[in-house]
Design a binder for these strands. Structure first.
Length: 423
DNA sequence: TCTGGGGTCCTAGGACCC
DNA sequence: TCTGGGGTCCTAGGACCC
């Protein structure tokens, strides 16, 4: 049996972050909305009980909001990102090997804890709770897939008291027979439907299905999942961050974009942000794709999906290079044959490399981009706040900005937003 | 009427994740 | 009227090579 892996996962993370700073949110139904205040992406237990589904558009449950006094909040990613960092900082004391899997989940290598595993996991939960105020659950298993499943069980079944250890075969069997296959990490709705037609409904059905059939139904990915459910480790803890392959900045404007000028301002802002992200990761990009499209939920209106990919030569992370390419893409694809209203636009970067790995040009550009200028730009915006310095083509007209009418303060990252204590 | 075998590389699209 | 944003991996099929 492989050494144990734990997955620690924050309960209703975004809602929990909000509750740390506003006690009035405790005990009542709370929902955090996606960007642009579109749909529910985090729900308190009370909101789940009321039947609010993950990803449900807010206009479809507006009646429940009124009727049950649900508290609705815009998402505050600055706050959640900072709280996530604090949670991970608390976990470093518990294992030398961690993999931060997402904003609210971390895999922890539990090698060497033997019979003291469950107390160790409980201590981890206590530390996170004490240091950040965030409640968590822990799942333990011989593989990542089983740790994920154990975590699900720890969340759903109070019998586990917040820590479920599936290293014991009895526990694993108990859990797998009671959970539907769609809950397994890597089994989405498509695969679930295909499995159902083969009579595979519970996790134990999946664990016991023939490998060859698993491969036929869901390629090597599902085959690997079956092996992991049998306790055969296929996925290791990745404690060094792999180099990323792509990067995207996409947004839905608060009101549809109908004219080229506004689109150019929005795209300038997205390309600018993309360039900042590139420089933060110390990468350069070889390909830039710019796209924009109309609302696919409104087939009664003129529809258009536009997209242009451009090669960046030389590869670059320079704001001027990226904005120039992105605007070229917008202008060359723009059409005014119909009154389009674009509800999404973005910039995607691919072929990312470290600057010293990027191919050199045989003929260097006549006016080489200066790294110093970008450093200055980043430093000004770091010190005086985002968007202090922007390109002229972004302008100051913010009509295309996203909606976020119910966002809480950036309690932990803005001096002006610090909570005030009155005694 | 007859028309090989064995590769690589790239891209689009599907499926999944949080 | 209102439906998020940002990722990864795998496969099939076409283009191309000798």
């Amino acid at each position: 049996m492989p050494e144990p892996i734990a997955l620690i996962d924050c309960n209703n993370f975004y809602v929990s972050c909000e509750r740390v700073f506003d006690q009035r949110l405790l005990g009542i139904p709370v929902v955090v909305l996606s960007n642009n205040d579109g749909c529910a992406i985090a729900r308190s237990e009370e909101a789940k009980v009321l039947g609010i589904k993950m990803g449900e558009p807010v206009h479809l449950f507006r009646d429940k909001v009124e009727r049950h006094g649900i508290k609705i909040l815009s998402s505050n990613y600055t706050l959640y990102g900072d709280m996530s960092r604090r949670v991970v900082a608390a976990l470093h004391a518990f294992s030398p090997s961690l993999e931060v899997y997402s904003i609210d989940e971390t895999f922890v290598d539990m090698t060497g804890f033997g019979s003291r595993m469950v107390p160790h996991a409980a201590a981890m939960r206590d530390a996170v709770r004490t240091l950040t105020g965030i409640p968590t659950c822990v799942g333990i298993g011989p593989t990542k897939t089983m740790a994920k499943l154990a975590n699900h069980a720890a969340k759903k079944n109070p019998v586990f008291g917040g820590v479920c250890d599936m290293m014991e075969k009895g526990v694993a069997d108990f859990v797998m027979r009671r959970i539907e296959v769609g809950e397994v990490w890597g089994v989405g709705s498509r695969t679930e439907a295909k499995l159902a037609s083969q009579g595979v409904r519970t996790v134990s059905d999946l664990r016991d299905m023939p490998m060859a059939l698993a491969r036929k139904v869901g390629t090597v990915v599902l085959e690997r999942t079956v092996a992991e459910l049998q306790g055969v480790r296929c996925l290791d803890i990745e404690d060094v961050e792999p180099q990323r392959k792509g990067m995207a900045v996409t947004r839905s404007p608060g009101v549809p974009i109908t004219d080229l000028d506004t689109m150019c301002r929005a795209i300038t802002a997205h390309a600018t942000r993309a360039a900042e992200k590139l420089r933060n990761h110390d990468l350069v990009a070889g390909t830039l794709t710019v796209f924009y499209h109309t609302n696919p939920h409104r087939p009664d209106r003129p529809q258009r999906h536009a997209s242009r990919s451009l090669a960046l030569k030389p590869m670059s992370s320079n704001t001027f290079d990226l904005v120039e390419a992105a605007l070229r893409g917008v202008r060359s694809s723009w059409r005014s044959d119909k009154p389009y209203g674009f509800t999404k636009a973005g910039v995607i970067l691919d072929d990312l490399l470290k600057p010293d790995e990027a191919p050199r040009m045989l003929f260097e550009p006549l006016k080489p981009r200066k790294a110093q200028l970008m450093n200055a730009l980043d430093q000004v915006n770091d010190r005086f706040g985002k968007k202090t310095l922007v390109l002229a083509s972004e302008g100051f007209d913010r009509r295309w900005h996203m909606k976020a009418d119910m966002r809480t303060p950036r309690y932990t990252t803005r001096i002006s937003d610090l909570p005030v204590l009155r005694v």
